[in-house]
C-alpha cells in the first residue's frame, strides 16, 4: 500500500516539469555545496569561507580564464559564488529550521489551549510583527555585533511569527472539524487525535512555507549584507559579493559580472526552493488530489 503510494507520487512528481526543474536545480546547488573544495580549492583550508585576495588593484576585472566570473574588490567572484552556496544553505536551513520550530511550538500552544494563553502569545506575536523587519534586524545586529551568525540570530528572532500564526490558525480550524469530533466519538484519546488528526492537517502548509522561505531567507540575508550588516568583507556570501558592486553602480559596464553571477545564483536558488515547495504541496496534500 505504502509502496504503491510512493511509486504513484514519484511518478506524479516526474510528470510535473516545473517540479523536476526545481528538483534538478536544488540537486545542482547541493552538489556545488558538497564539492566546493574540489571546484574552488581554498588557499587556507582552515578558513575556506574567506575569499582569497586575487589582486591588489581595487578596480574590478572582467572574467578571464584565471578568474572565470571576474574580480571585484580584489576578490575572485567564482570562488565567492561557489563557497557562497554553502553559506546560502547554512542560512536557509538554520534560520528556517529554528524559526519554524519556534513558530510551531508557540502557534500550537496558543491554538490548542486557547483562552488567555492564546491571548498573551498572540499579542507578543503582534508586537514582533509590528516592528519593521529590516530596522529591527539592524538594531539587533548593532547590539550583537557584526557577523553572519548575528544576522542569523536576528532573522530567527524576527522570523517565527508567520509560522506561529499559520499553525495557530490551522489548529483552531482543525480543532472544530467534525472528523475530530467523530474520532472522539469513536473513543480515540486526545494525544492520538492531535498526532493523527490535527497535525497531519496542519503541517502541510508549514512544510510548504518552510521550503518557500528557504529561498527568501537567502535574499533577506543578502539584503542585510548589502546594507553592510551581514558577513564581514571578504566572506564567501552572495550578498557580500553584491555589496562590493555598490561602488560601481553607476558604471555597470565595468562591473556587471559582480552583479550578474551572484545575482543569478541567488535567483536560481530561490526559484529551486519555490518550485520544490510547490511540488511538495501538490504531492503531500491529499486535499489537492483530484
Amino acid at each position: 500500500m505504502l509502496k504503491d503510494e510512493i511509486k504513484k507520487n514519484t511518478r506524479k512528481f516526474f510528470r510535473n516539469p516545473t517540479a523536476v526543474l526545481g528538483f534538478v536545480l536544488l540537486i545542482f546547488f547541493i552538489l556545488i555545496a558538497v564539492f566546493a573544495p574540489l571546484i574552488a580549492p581554498p588557499e587556507n583550508p582552515d578558513n575556506p569561507y574567506r575569499i582569497p585576495i586575487a589582486t591588489w588593484s581595487l578596480k574590478p576585472q572582467p572574467p578571464s580564464p584565471e578568474h572565470p566570473f571576474g574580480v571585484i574588490g580584489q576578490r575572485d567572484i567564482f570562488y565567492g559564488v561557489v563557497w557562497g552556496t554553502r553559506t546560502a544553505f547554512r542560512i536557509g536551513l538554520i534560520v528556517a529550521g529554528i524559526s519554524t520550530i519556534i513558530g510551531i511550538v508557540i502557534g500550537s500552544i496558543a491554538g490548542y489551549f486557547g483562552g488567555w494563553i492564546d491571548e498573551i502569545l498572540m499579542r507578543i506575536t503582534d508586537i514582533f510583527m509590528a516592528l519593521p523587519f529590516l530596522v529591527a534586524a539592524m538594531v539587533l545586529t548593532t547590539i550583537l555585533g557584526k557577523g553572519l551568525d548575528k544576522v542569523m540570530i536576528a532573522m530567527i528572532v524576527f522570523g517565527w511569527m508567520a509560522t506561529a500564526r499559520l499553525i495557530r490558525g490551522n489548529i483552531l480550524q482543525v480543532k472544530e472539524e467534525q472528523y475530530v469530533l467523530a474520532a472522539k466519538a469513536l473513543g480515540v484519546r486526545d494525544s492520538l487525535i492531535i498526532l493523527k488528526h490535527v497535525i497531519p492537517n496542519t503541517i502541510f502548509p508549514v512544510i510548504v512555507q518552510v521550503s518557500m522561505r528557504m529561498g527568501s531567507l537567502v535574499i533577506t540575508a543578502a539584503a542585510l549584507s548589502f546594507l553592510g550588516l551581514g558577513a564581514e568583507p571578504g566572506y564567501a556570501d552572495w550578498g557580500t559579493l553584491l555589496s562590493y558592486s555598490r561602488n560601481w553602480l553607476t558604471e555597470f559596464d565595468k562591473a556587471w559580472f559582480s552583479i550578474v553571477y551572484p545575482g543569478v545564483a541567488m535567483i536560481l536558488f530561490v526559484l529551486a526552493w519555490n518550485l520544490v515547495g510547490d511540488a511538495l504541496r501538490d504531492i503531500f496534500d491529499p486535499r489537492l488530489r483530484g
Binding site: E177, L181, A182, A185
Partner: peptide
Amino acid sequence: RGNDIAMIFQEPMVALN
C-alpha cells in the same frame, strides 16, 4: 465511545478526515 455507543454526524463531507 465507539464500542458501546457510536455516533454519526450530519455532514458526511467533513466528518471524515
